[in-house]
Simulated scan of single mutants.
Amino acid sequence: MATVTLKGNEIHTLGDLPKNGSQAPNFTLVKTDLSTTSLSDYKGQKVVLNIFPSIDTGTCAQSVRQFNQEAAELENTKILCISKDLPFAQARFCGSEGIDKVETLSDFRDGNFGKAYNVAFTDGPLQGLLSRSVVVINENGEVVHSEQVSETVDEPNYKAALEALMDA
């Protein structure tokens, strides 16, 4: 169990993120068109997993905007923005914001992504949602950077994630 805070109050997730150098756990998530995708679909590419509780909160929305801006500059890299929001809400947000460089994916069907990456909240007001985290995966499917944001209302360290991509 990992401990983070929400506005200073402790809440917990299932555990720790995958360690640097480990193989990233596979997953199946739902796209905005309700089809599914897996990590294996991105084989041979660098992947950034931008994980958050809900696209309908300010910090989560900002992380999607920021990574969308950064993604325009990256070669052979996919940015996957992952939450338990319904695909309809994700598509609405991206459409209204003009976001088109990242992919939004949902873990709403079975929650297996949250379990595989240990980011599902186990208690508190966000129980069942996903903890704000970033995982960077190289072309070989290995984790090269991970960050579970210690205070849920704070943004992730974009610079550290992008530097890990350059070094991958």
Rank of each mutant, 00 (worst) to 15 (best):
V48I: 07
N68F: 11
I55F: 04
L74Y: 14
S40Y: 00
F67S: 07
F88S: 03
D41A: 01
D41F: 00
Y42F: 13
F67M: 13
R65P: 14
Q66D: 14
N68I: 08
S63D: 13
C81G: 11
L74C: 12
G44I: 07
G95H: 11
S83K: 04
N76P: 01
I51T: 06
A71N: 12
L49A: 12
I55K: 00
A71R: 09
Q45Y: 07
K78E: 08
P53L: 01
F93C: 02
D100Q: 13
Y42D: 01
A71P: 11
L74N: 10
Y42C: 05
E70M: 15
C81E: 07
D56A: 03
G58S: 11
Q69M: 15
S38Q: 06
D56R: 01
F108D: 13
F52G: 06
S96I: 15
Y42L: 05
Y42T: 03
K43C: 04
K78A: 11
V47H: 01
A91L: 15
S96L: 11
I79Y: 10
G95D: 09
T104D: 08
V47I: 05
T104I: 07
G44D: 07
L49I: 14
I79Q: 14
C94R: 07
T104W: 10
N76I: 01
N50T: 15
N68D: 13
L86S: 13
E75V: 09
K101L: 01
E70Q: 13
K46I: 00
S54A: 15
L86M: 11
S106C: 07
D85M: 01
I79L: 09
K101D: 05
D56V: 02
D107L: 03
S106T: 04
L39F: 00
S40V: 05
T104L: 12
